[in-house]
Simulated scan of single mutants.
Amino acid sequence: MTAEPGGVRARVAQRQQPPASRPRARVEPGQDPAQPEGTASLIAGKRRLIDDLDARIIALIGERMAVSGEIQAARLGSGGRRLHLNREMEVLRTYGEALGRPGTSVAMTLLELCRGRV
């Protein structure tokens, strides 16, 4: 018995062969090959924007730390305490209301950065 050209054996043999390889587009280092070409440049631009925002946030935190230190020095100079717990609770509440539970964590970190600079 001989196999027909389009018979079962021919179809099975055809399925077992690897698919024909397609020419691949050149992928730049750091580029995800699954993303369309314009997406990579969009992401790179947005990352630069985030880097700029982070730099501005860090600068603002430094400024807040300096002002907080001045307040602490004034309070201690007049015989008061370094920390004002009611004020810290206001800050925690403000951040929590604006950003939810993670906002409270941000506020805790911010308050920790600003304590004890005198």
Rank of each mutant, 00 (worst) to 15 (best):
E88S: 07
L42F: 06
R9L: 15
S105Q: 05
D52H: 09
G6T: 11
A44E: 12
D52G: 15
L49P: 00
E4Y: 04
R9Y: 10
A55I: 01
L60G: 06
G79E: 02
M65R: 15
L85R: 14
V27Y: 04
R22L: 09
S41C: 05
G69N: 05
L99T: 01
K46F: 12
S41E: 13
L113F: 08
L42M: 09
L99W: 10
A66N: 09
E4L: 13
E112Y: 03
R22D: 05
P5M: 03
R11I: 09
M1A: 14
A73R: 15
A25I: 01
R26E: 07
L110E: 12
A98W: 01
P33D: 02
A66Q: 10
T39W: 06
S105F: 08
G45Q: 08
N86V: 00
G38Y: 01
R9Q: 12
N86L: 10
P18N: 07
R24M: 04
E63S: 14
R56A: 08
I57A: 11
P33Q: 05
E97I: 02
Q35T: 09
M1F: 06
P36D: 12
R47P: 01
P102L: 04
R117P: 01
A55N: 06
Y95N: 00
S21K: 10
V106P: 00
V106T: 07
L92S: 03
H84C: 12
A3R: 11
T39P: 01
P18A: 08
E4G: 03
A25Q: 10
S21A: 13
S21V: 08
V91Q: 05
L92C: 01
R117N: 13
P29N: 04
R26H: 07
